[in-house]
Write a protein that binds this DNA or RNA. Sequence first.
DNA 1: TCCCAAATTTCGGCATGCCGAAATAATACG
DNA 2: CGTATTATTTCGGCATGCCGAAATTTGGGA
Lengths: 218, 218
Amino acid sequence: MNGSTTVEDYVKTIYGHTEWQPESITPSALAARMGLAASSVTEMVKKLAASGLVTHVPYGAITLTDQGRALALRMVRRHRLIETWLVESFGYGWDEVHDEAEVLEHALSDRMLDAISRQLGQPTRDPHGDPIPAADGTVRLPDAVLLSQASDGHRGAVVRISDRNPELLRWLDEHAVRLDAPIEVIERRPFGGALAVLVDGHPLDLGSDAAAAIWLAA
Amino acid sequence: MNGSTTVEDYVKTIYGHTEWQPESITPSALAARMGLAASSVTEMVKKLAASGLVTHVPYGAITLTDQGRALALRMVRRHRLIETWLVESFGYGWDEVHDEAEVLEHALSDRMLDAISRQLGQPTRDPHGDPIPAADGTVRLPDAVLLSQASDGHRGAVVRISDRNPELLRWLDEHAVRLDAPIEVIERRPFGGALAVLVDGHPLDLGSDAAAAIWLAA
DNA sequence: TCCCAAATTTCGGCATGCCGAAATAATACG
DNA sequence: CGTATTATTTCGGCATGCCGAAATTTGGGA
Ligand SMILES: [Mn+2]
Ligand SMILES: [Mn+2]
Ligand SMILES: [Mn+2]
Ligand SMILES: [Mn+2]
């Protein structure tokens, strides 16, 4: 049926692609994100479609059905709650939680998840600012601008930082770029150069990778 | 190599068979314990032997090697620590922890396990009285007598109760048969009849299944 | 000692997921 | 518009684990 660890990771990855800029994902992009061969993705997508979790016309993009989206949100909730838990209750750094959550999201029972959520006071965002879907599957994305696309002079608190690159997370943390830190865009250097910003009033130069990982309040 | 979830459960089950009455396990007994066909066990045992976790001569019994025993103890430690954690930190009943632990034992990282053990004060026995092996693989089994084999007049505290049957655990709990409760054997009724005991001074009749699940301090 | 029942192993098969190579479809561009 | 590149799918294969049926081994009783 549905619900294997593998299926859970597929729908979660598909959802993740559309969360911040909604456009359905292609098989090759999905394969790249999951670190799998394209042929593996083709086959699994066929099964996901057969069990009603995605729609997919051959050679076309992949889109979650309502059912698929519901499963994805369930997994995203699990993942982010667990990340939060690891930071709050086990002293993990925000750069250390992802891999552990990737495993535990498939293993904890609903009962434990509920207990954890309660113990943490029903948090609504994870250590990286990602919104934690409610148990009923509702999510509210903060109004956010990607720092790399913010205009000069834009001011706003950091509302989200991509958790994709742990090294970047460590570097940002060392330079006081954390959730809720106020940032002002000073100057955008041309030709893909650094972005000059003020973090909490202190000047900092951010490379394009860093700037593409940070969202500011709109 | 070694270390898949499946392999972990096999060595744990083999170890479990020998913990309280050391005699190596036969393929059919192992199959029965694991709920698998005998043919499946034959094949897996061959792989376990090939990777040095058990010794096995064809048509003979199965014995853990030192390496297999080390892995088993690692898993048993995980299982029992997790059961303890579920009771202490998540309000589970002692009859509710086994299945959840059976999954989590394969999923939690060593780092989390260490943190949990520290949070619980490095416990040395689980909710059923089973000893929790230390991180270095040492275990100390309490001196215990199976209640069904204790002689009339024997007195001793409950040091262990088998966690195999959750219904039995609930029944025992309702009748105040808990860890450390003092028990005195009054009378052994003949022909496999009930065993009359005093629990904390109160009379109670135990059937043979119950009596075979309870260990008293020797 | 011989034979039989029970235990064990072997064998072919199935399910899940993955891969690389080959085939095919879509698209881009000259 | 035709072709060349790129994306996608198909196909055969592999690894892990499981099963039932058939074959084999063992140990006990006659
Ligand atoms: Mn995962
Ligand atoms: Mn996160
Ligand atoms: Mn248990
Ligand atoms: Mn298990």
